[in-house]
Simulated scan of single mutants.
Amino acid sequence: MNLLFNGKTCYLRTLTVDDAEEMVQLLVRNRDYWAIYEPRHQDSYFTALVQREKIRESIYQARENREYSFGIFEHESNKMIGHISMYSIKRLPFLSALVGYSIDEGYIGKGIATEAVRLVNTFGFEQLRLHRIEAYVSPKNMGSIRVLQKTGFLNEGLLREFLYINGVWEDHYQFALLESEF
Rank of each mutant, 00 (worst) to 15 (best):
Q42Y: 06
Q174K: 15
A48H: 05
Q42E: 15
G143F: 08
K54A: 07
Y11D: 12
M1E: 09
V120F: 03
H41E: 14
F175R: 09
N2K: 15
R146C: 11
F73R: 15
Y33C: 05
K150Y: 09
L27I: 07
R146M: 15
T9R: 14
E64D: 09
L4P: 07
T9P: 05
G152V: 12
E115T: 05
D18W: 12
L98C: 10
A20W: 01
R13C: 07
K110P: 06
L163S: 12
V50Q: 04
H75C: 05
V120P: 03
T16R: 13
I89F: 03
R63T: 13
K54Y: 04
G71I: 00
R129S: 14
F70P: 07
T122W: 08
F5R: 00
L178R: 03
T47P: 01
L4D: 05
G82M: 03
V28M: 08
I89V: 01
G111H: 00
H131G: 11
E76Y: 01
E105P: 07
E126M: 12
Q25Y: 07
L158V: 14
Y101L: 00
Y45A: 02
V28C: 06
T16M: 10
R40H: 02
S144Y: 11
C10V: 10
L119R: 04
F46S: 02
T16K: 14
F73D: 03
I103N: 01
I133L: 12
T122R: 14
R13F: 05
M80A: 09
G124S: 08
R56S: 02
P139L: 01
V28R: 07
I108Y: 04
G143D: 06
E57P: 02
E170K: 14
S102G: 11
L12H: 09
N141Y: 00
N6T: 11
F94E: 10
G111N: 05
P39D: 01
Y101A: 00
R13G: 02
H172Q: 07
L12F: 11
G106R: 01
E74I: 03
I81S: 00
L26A: 01
F162Y: 15
Q149A: 05
F70W: 05
L4V: 15
A20M: 01
E134I: 06
D18R: 13
A35I: 10
P93V: 02
L15H: 04
K79E: 12
S85F: 06
L4G: 08
T14E: 01
V50L: 02
Y101G: 00
Y68F: 10
E22L: 14
N155Q: 13
G82Y: 04
G167C: 12
Y11T: 10
D18Y: 09
I59W: 05
E22D: 02
H75F: 11
V147S: 05
